[in-house]
Design a protein around this nucleic acid. Structure first.
Lengths: 166, 166
DNA sequence: TAGGATTGCGCAATCT
DNA sequence: TAGATTGCGCAATCCT
């Protein structure tokens, strides 16, 4: 984390462009409070790309050779810098949100696991109770017909098992 | 995604340092195959920081004034660029992993929810069965003492409820 | 102190 | 045409 003013200048050569140094005007149109100023605007001079004119470009005729002095250039740069900052903030925020989501889901998982444990226990108790009761009945009374067969319950025991296939 | 060579130069002013342009030697010790060459090495000259000597610096006396010509500088830069790339790759990977984790946790959650549903249903059936049976007993036999009170089971019904408190 | 790891930032090429 | 992304280099810090 650092929040220091930083002045940079870079000359990107491209498509045959020579760079000539010029004294800069320290106008600092920076919105952020940058203290130090030291502009150095390299003068871009298009190097003649051979003898031919630039009519009917071979494939794609981009890069009208940007003039780094022009207001338009600076404006474009500034807008882009803003966009970049915005985009990065978003990206960061998103990453943070995703991490948060992981935490939430983990918690939820634990809750669910706990609930499953509880339900399983309840089921188990209930089944034991039922079986015991059924035995008692069998001992004390002779039911004319089979009322409820404990076997049905036993089937329910762990039928829906899930294999952790991973 | 773009993989184009790019030449840059920037002069960072700091702690009172003026920049004077110098003609560069395009030696290009770059390992990466950068086609175009155009070095512009700004000569860094320390501006006298007042009249006092720089003995016993007030706080931190860093920045021995980097010489952008030196091999050491270039080596440092290159190492740092590598480190940066590495760090960014990691960061990206991590973000990806986190996203993946979210997906996995979501799936797991669904599985757990399904299991809970199943268990709940089983419990419900079992309880109904038990209650019915208890009624039958009550109708047909007069138990000397209370054998099992169905109320106990009803208590177990939905005890462990969970509130989604975000 | 040295040196790798992070982070913020600007530029330019692309993408949308 | 313009904003959004993305790769990259620089420098300041952070962290060992």
């Amino acid at each position: 984390m650092s929040k220091q003013s930083q002045q940079k200048l870079n000359n990107t050569d491209q498509n045959g462009v020579s760079v000539i140094q010029t004294q800069a005007h320290s106008s600092t149109p920076n919105s952020a409070g940058a203290a130090a100023e030291l502009q150095q605007v390299p003068q871009l001079v298009p190097v003649s790309s051979g003898g031919g004119g630039k009519a009917t470009p071979p494939s794609k005729m981009k890069k009208p050779i940007l003039d780094k002095e022009s207001d338009e250039y600076r404006q474009r740069r500034e807008r882009n810098n803003l966009a970049v900052k915005k985009s990065r903030m978003r990206s960061k925020q998103k990453a943070q949100d995703t991490q948060q989501r992981v935490n939430e889901l983990k918690e939820e998982n634990e809750r669910l696991e706990a609930k499953i444990k509880l339900l399983s226990k309840e089921l188990s108790v209930l089944k034991d109770l039922f079986l015991e009761h059924a035995h008692n009945l069998a001992d004390n009374v002779q039911p004319p017909a089979a009322a409820v067969t404990p076997g049905d319950l036993c089937n329910n025991n762990n039928s829906g098992n899930n294999n952790n296939s991973q």
